[in-house]
Design a protein around this nucleic acid. Sequence first.
DNA 1: CATCTTAGTAAGCCATGGCTTACCGTAAGC
DNA 2: GCTTACGGTAAGCCATGGCTTACTAAGATG
Lengths: 110, 110
Amino acid sequence: MAYKSGALESLGALGDPTRREIFERLAAQPSAVVDLARGLPVSRPAVSQHLKVLKQAGLVREISQGTRRIYSLDPRGIGAMRRWLDSHWASALDAFRQFADQQHEEELDR
Amino acid sequence: MAYKSGALESLGALGDPTRREIFERLAAQPSAVVDLARGLPVSRPAVSQHLKVLKQAGLVREISQGTRRIYSLDPRGIGAMRRWLDSHWASALDAFRQFADQQHEEELDR
DNA sequence: CATCTTAGTAAGCCATGGCTTACCGTAAGC
DNA sequence: GCTTACGGTAAGCCATGGCTTACTAAGATG
């Protein structure tokens, strides 16, 4: 159950476009904060704040290398979102088929 | 290209908790606006506004039944998000393994 | 030990966006 | 045709949260 809310918190975190951009850059390669800030249209502290949110959402992890902190994606958080999405995707497909069948029956009823 | 940005737009749409709630209710069963509004802590127009966003994000579709509009999940939008997530999930796992290997090598170097 | 780099936090500003009420269009039921 | 139910849109309010600058901490480098 800690996982269910985890997936939802992750979605909340990825709601912000800057955080999505950071997320995609970390997918390309793990990076330090200062390197992420270069190439982004926001200041370094802003990046730190975003990383904090992403970390709390279980989407990134970080390791220290000297004064630098190397951030990378956390497969666990992404996995949780993936499972959440998959289950809803399945329901959506079910509902879609059900609806199609129903429409078909109504066609026949005429 | 409308679809690549589609996955990102979907994430933006699901960033709001009320929209996630609506999304989950629609996953359970397709519903009319007035029925969604009952049981949610917001007014009916608010629900309409959320549905508009979800629809633009390709996450829901609606059909008319008299004056009612029955909303349901759209598998296509969910599928797009799923693919986006899967690709990043793969990168995350790669990076994770790479990092683990690297750490292991450094262990051996001592 | 002094300095420089990296990064997290605090304080405060301000735009975004989510909410409400009010209004209008449209389909059904009597 | 009049009324009722449903739902989208407009206008406006206000809190949330994302951004900046300033400050502090901690490790590296000379």
